[in-house]
């Protein structure tokens, strides 16, 4: 059934027990994503190492299961990458959902494939990723 494809076990798991949930104080940078259609809000916190890699990442979400799980899975996927690599994963993931792009290398993020059949949930699946981009380019605070 399409619906169970959307809400796969791993999605439900990450929505109930989000990984890397919480706030990071400065000097971590933060970025937020807001969906005016539903009021959902995600804030992502990023702390980079001296070499420019994402050393620590966390997020806070007032959001649906799809959004929370996508953001939770994202934190696992981009941890330890550089800003360029993280943004490349972001582009790859969004292409996978919107342009039928390849899922190769996306790991558990492939569980979000069900979103392709529910285009009204695309914003939910990508909100945290926009917050990540803002956090990577954002100010501390």
């Amino acid at each position: 059934m399409d619906f169970d494809e959307l809400y796969q076990e791993i999605i439900l798991d990450h929505s109930k027990r989000p990984r890397n949930s919480g706030v990071l104080p400065p000097p971590a940078t933060r970025g937020s994503g807001y969906n005016p259609a539903c009021g959902d809000e995600v804030t992502v916190f990023v702390l980079k190492s001296a070499e420019g890699k994402i050393e620590t990442i966390s997020f806070q979400a007032q959001a649906c299961a799809i959004c929370t799980a996508s953001t939770s899975l994202m934190t696992l996927q981009v941890k330890g990458t550089t800003q360029e690599q993280a943004l490349e994963i972001q582009r790859h993931f969004i292409d996978f959902l919107t342009k039928d792009g390849s899922s190769e290398g996306l790991g558990h993020l492939r569980a979000l494939a069900g979103v392709k059949k529910f285009p009204q949930r695309l914003k939910c699946a990508t909100l945290g990723w926009h917050a990540l981009e803002a956090a990577l380019k954002g100010d501390a605070g």
Binding site: D2, F3, L6, C38, C64, A65, I66, C124
Partner: peptide, 12 residues
């Protein structure tokens, strides 16, 4: 349960 998840479930 977030309202969007609930509405999606009900729609199903």
């Amino acid at each position: 349960i977030h309202a969007h998840d609930l509405v999606a479930f009900a729609d199903q």
